[in-house]
Amino acid sequence: MITSALRIFDLSLGQMLWSRRSVFLALLAGGPVGLALGIRVILLLTPAQLPMVNGARMSGTAIFGLIIWLLYLRFIIPVLGAFYGTSLIADEVEDKTITYLFTRPIPRGAVLVGKYLAYLLCTILLVLPSAVIVYFIVTPLGGGSIGEQFPSLLSDLGMLAVGLAAYGALFALVGATFKRPLVVGLVFTFGWEPGVLIFPGYLKHATIAFYLQALVPHAMPNEESVVGGILQLFNEIPPLETSLASLAGITLVALWLASRATQTREFVLDQ
């Protein structure tokens, strides 16, 4: 199974990296870089100081934290997971190339796992460097020190990788189970997760964002909306160990279920 998965990984990585979809991935990963550059240029051109927030002046580190929270954690990571995770098998089915993989002496589950690994490496290779570039652009703003904050950057990178793994596995399961997986993925990302996070109680445990938040070394930003206010009010951060164990559990279980679903499901190609 592992050898077969690695061979599929080998075959899929090049396909994923050099596909037109990578343009989209690059745009997403490049968005925060563009934003960081924009902020830097504006602050260079205008002598205006960074604003005061809660009595303290906004710093480069705080801006980096904001970008991690609002762009990476709440948007880029789940969206990349939804897009690529649901496409692992769906792409091959849509392109009608799945036949070549499913008529080879490898378990079907290995096809999914191999493609998942390719997704993970491909997204990590693009998202993590993007976060590092943003860090180097914005951290020095307001007198921040790149060296001092470096350990926090490593935590951020770890969190992003874990997030990509967990969302990717969950959406791989969605892709292997549902007929319109991307719609389900978008409902989960933009409907379910922000929806249940505002409720107190156990419902939020049924999200990935809840556990992922515990891995972010920056404080959750204050948001102006009602939902943002409630989020702050019921903000509950689980212990780090619980979060890591839960995310690992979600990843492994979702991947195993996805692999089983691929094994038993029939894929009827459009004529």
Partner: peptide, 8 residues
């Protein structure tokens, strides 16, 4: 070649 590699 890639497909034959899947045959081991």
């Amino acid at each position: 070649t890639a497909l034959v590699r899947l045959n081991g």
